[in-house]
Each structure stands twice: as C-alpha cells, then as structure tokens.
Simulated assay, not measured.
Amino acid sequence: MKIERLGQDKIRIFLTFDDLSERGIQKEDMWQEIPKVHDLFTEMMDQAYNEVGFDATGPLAVEVFALPAQGMVVIVTRGKFDHHHGVGPHYEDDLPDEVYEMEVTLEQSDTILYSFDDFEVLIEAAHVLRPMLTEAGRLFKYNGKWVLHLEPEDLEEGKHPAVIAVLAEFGEATSVTPAMLEEYGNQVMSENAIGVICSNFKRQD
C-alpha cells in the first residue's frame, strides 16, 4: 500500500492485488458495503494519517480506479465538515460515523503502466517483450523513473498474461495515470517504444 499526498484535502492510495488478497478482498468487493472493505478503508485512513498527516474527518469523496495489471488506485478527497450537523449531547458519538460518510465512484481501466529504475533493465524487458508485441508502447520519464505505457489494443489476443508477467519481472507496477504522465512527465518515445528500444539498444551479454 503506497500513499501519496496530492493536496491539502486529497490523497492517492495505490493498492496492489497482493494488498487486497492478503485481506481476503476481491476486486469486485471494493464497491460493496462489507466489513472487510470497511476495515481496509479504516486501515488506509490510519496509515494516511500516520504517513502524510491526512485527517479523514468529515465527508469523503472516494474514487476507485481499477487497473487490471497493477491493482487499484484510490483517490480520497476530504469535503467540508458540516459543523451544524450533530450539534448536541451526541456530537462526539456522531463523529466516527462522519469519517465514513463516503461517496464512492468507480472506473475501470485496461491501461498497463510499469516503471523501471534503470534503463538497462528496460532494454532487457523490451527485448523479451518484442516477440509478443508488434508496434506498441509509449515511454515517459517521470519522477526519475522510466514509465512504459501500453494500451490493450497494443497486445495480441491471449498475450496479456505473458506481457504482464514479463513487466512484473523487470519493472514495478505504478499508480501514475496516463493523464499525469502527459501533464507532468516527459514523453521520450511517442509510439512503438518497444521496437525503438530494441532497434537502438542491444541486450547486455
């Protein structure tokens, strides 16, 4: 579980599928009101407070982006707390419930994004991937890492699991979105990144 502060009232949490499976949660459970998900959200908010000082008091807007290859990105935005609500002897009792007054929206994405610390490792991955991919991939430099961006249409039918396996072996799933890459990253290769890398860089012996 990785937590990043996006602003005073907004954080982003990246959950891998391992994070979910360790807690006995399936991807489909994330938009259901079940105790396991409630416990996970409590854990996320505790960790967010401890790591980045995010106070989850008040109504929260929660956006969940399901990324099939990487896991889930959860964007939590804190709304304005209504100080008139619950005024009276039970005000303190009402506060815990307020923390979980959530509005949840979900989006599915088939985009594949993996980051690489070392360009030499990316070269190796590209050569392994090339037989599976024809003309595929965009390459960005973002936060000191090389980020490879693949769309589902770049992959031949049935090759998806094999491609993910290679990417997971050489790189690391990242929670950054294509929109963030385009806005804050530097586009190094706009198309056919796999082919361009393989044509210009040899594998290490």
Results as ranks from 00 to 15, higher is better:
Phe140Ser: 01
Arg138Leu: 12
Val147Gly: 03
Ala162Glu: 09
Leu181Arg: 03
Lys145Asn: 05
Ala168Gly: 15
Leu167Phe: 06
Cys198Tyr: 12
Leu150Gly: 00
Glu156Val: 09
Ser175Tyr: 02
Leu148Arg: 11
Ser175Pro: 12
Arg138Gly: 01
Ala173Tyr: 02
Leu167Val: 10
Gly137His: 01
Val176Phe: 02
Arg138Phe: 07
His160Val: 11
Ala193Glu: 07
Ala193Gln: 01
Glu182Ala: 00
Asn143Leu: 13
Lys141His: 15
Gly171Ala: 02
Val176Arg: 02
Lys159Phe: 08
Gln187Arg: 15
Ile194Pro: 09
Tyr184Met: 11
Cys198Phe: 14
Pro178Asp: 02
Phe170Asp: 08
Tyr142Gln: 11
Pro161Trp: 08
His160Pro: 03
Gly185Met: 02
Pro152Phe: 12
Ala136Phe: 01
Ser190His: 13
Thr177His: 03
Arg138Pro: 08
Asn192Glu: 11
Val188Met: 09
Phe170Trp: 07
Pro161Gln: 05
Glu151Met: 06
Val166Asn: 10
Glu182Asn: 00
Glu169Tyr: 08
Pro161Val: 07
Ile197Arg: 07
Phe140Cys: 00
Glu191Leu: 14
Leu155Ser: 04
Glu172Arg: 12
Glu169Lys: 13
Leu181Tyr: 08
Val166Ala: 04
Val176Gln: 01
Cys198Leu: 11
Leu150Val: 03
Glu169His: 15
Met180Phe: 08
Gly195Phe: 12
Phe140Glu: 02
Thr174Asp: 06
Leu150Cys: 05
Ala173Val: 02
Thr174Phe: 05
Ser190Gln: 14
Ser190Thr: 11
Ala136Ile: 00
Ile197Gln: 10
Gly185Tyr: 06
Ala193Phe: 05
Thr174Gly: 10
Ala162Arg: 09
Glu135Lys: 10
Ile194Tyr: 03
Lys159His: 06
Glu169Pro: 15
Ala162Met: 11
Ala179Gly: 09
Val166Tyr: 03
Ser175Gly: 05
Leu150Ile: 01
His149Ser: 07
Met189Lys: 09
Gly171Ser: 08
Asp154Glu: 06
Gly195His: 03
Glu191Arg: 14
Asn192Cys: 02
Glu157Asp: 11
Pro178Tyr: 04
Glu183Tyr: 02
Phe170Ser: 01
Leu155Asn: 05
Gly195Asn: 04
Glu153Asn: 13
Tyr142Lys: 08
Leu167Asn: 09
Glu157Tyr: 14
Arg138His: 10
Asp154Phe: 06
Lys159Ser: 10
Gly158Glu: 08
Glu156Pro: 04
Gly137Asn: 01
Glu172Val: 14
Leu167Thr: 12
Ile164Gln: 09
Ser190Trp: 12
Arg138Gln: 09
Cys198Pro: 06
Gly137Met: 06
Glu135Gly: 09
Asn143Thr: 14
Leu139Pro: 05
